[in-house]
Every structure is written in structure tokens, then in C-alpha cells.
Amino acid sequence: MRQTTIQLGEEVEVRFVGALTMNDQAAFRTMLADVSQRKPRHCAFDLRELESIDSAGIGMLLIAFSVAKNSNYSFSVDHPTGHVRRVLELADLSKIITIRM
């Protein structure tokens, strides 16, 4: 998985490319710490180029949501496509996290 963090005013956007799995846990954790340090009002994970995600990846999205909640900024998952979108829908993730198609 490759990720790029972009600051857009008070919003931070993180773009993911490839696959989000357990192997990306350390990098993900570092990225989350970086986002929190920026103290944004909103953080968006752009998944349009994320090709696949496993259950650990979904767990990481939930952790990101918890961190955002504890750090008082809003969080959303944007533009999931293909397999990722299907998995997120079947997992009913939209009941917990804001998903913007």
C-alpha cells in the first residue's frame, strides 16, 4: 500500500493506492499520528485508487475513525470503488463511518 497525505486548508486528505492489509499497520499508525498532529477539522481517506482491502484494513479504518473522534475532528471515507466498495457495503460500514461515494 502507498499513501499520500495532503493538507487542504483545515482538511487533510490521505490518498491510498494498492491494497490495505495487516502488513500496512505500522505505516498506517504513523500516518494517523501525522494526521492528528496537523489538528485538522476534517480528515478524508480517498480510496478511489485502493484496489483491495482485508478485514484488518477495515479494522484500521475503524481505528482511524476512533482516533478522529477522540481528537475532535470529523472523518470520512471517500470514493471507494470495485471490491473495496462492495466489502464496505456488505460490512455495513456506513452505519459507523461517513462514506462519500
Binding site: 495487516m22 484488518a56 479494522g59 455495513d92
Partner: peptide, 20 residues
């Protein structure tokens, strides 16, 4: 099934947290 899947993703979250 929805409840089971919710439990699965919660467990995944906890697993990631434990690993961390």
C-alpha cells in the same frame, strides 16, 4: 449475518490495536 460481520470487523479492529 449483519451482527456477525459487525463482530468480525470489531475483532479486526481489536486485533490491529493489540498488534500496535
Amino acid at each position: 449475518l449483519g451482527a456477525l460481520i459487525a463482530q468480525i470487523i470489531q475483532n479486526s479492529k481489536y486485533s490491529v490495536q493489540v498488534v500496535c
